[in-house]
């Protein structure tokens, strides 16, 4: 029974890691897009929002949202299945 369980959790964990991989890449792509000068330029106006320049509000706002998204994505992912010993010792 126990063996049966590990057989099933292993691929599931791997699949979950695959999702994590895809989501992080997607976030990086989104970040690259939002920080692209063309996109940033849209918010480049001499306007103060609550006393803060729109440009800075946009840049720092997107930045912090990206970090929150990264945190949520990695922290909700299942723990990695790699054992420390397996990689630390040169895996011969």
């Amino acid at each position: 029974m126990a063996a049966h369980e590990t057989d099933q959790t292993e691929p599931m964990a791997q699949a979950a890691q695959g999702y994590l991989n895809d989501r992080l890449v997607a976030l990086a792509a989104l970040g690259a897009l939002l920080f692209h000068p063309l996109f940033v330029g849209l918010f480049d106006a001499p306007v103060l929002v609550m006393g803060i320049p729109l440009l800075f509000l946009y840049l720092f706002g997107v930045w912090v949202l990206l970090i929150i998204a990264l945190a949520v994505t990695t922290e909700t992912a299942p723990p990695a299945t790699i054992e420390r010993d397996d990689i630390g010792s040169g895996s011969f």
């Binding site: 991989n21 992080l24 890449v25 976030l27 990086a28 970040g31 920080f35 990206l66």
Partner: peptide, 13 residues
């Protein structure tokens, strides 16, 4: 500093 942020988003890869 934005560059490293993006790079760490790709960190998993």
């Amino acid at each position: 500093y934005l560059g490293p942020t993006l790079m760490f988003a790709l960190g998993w890869v």
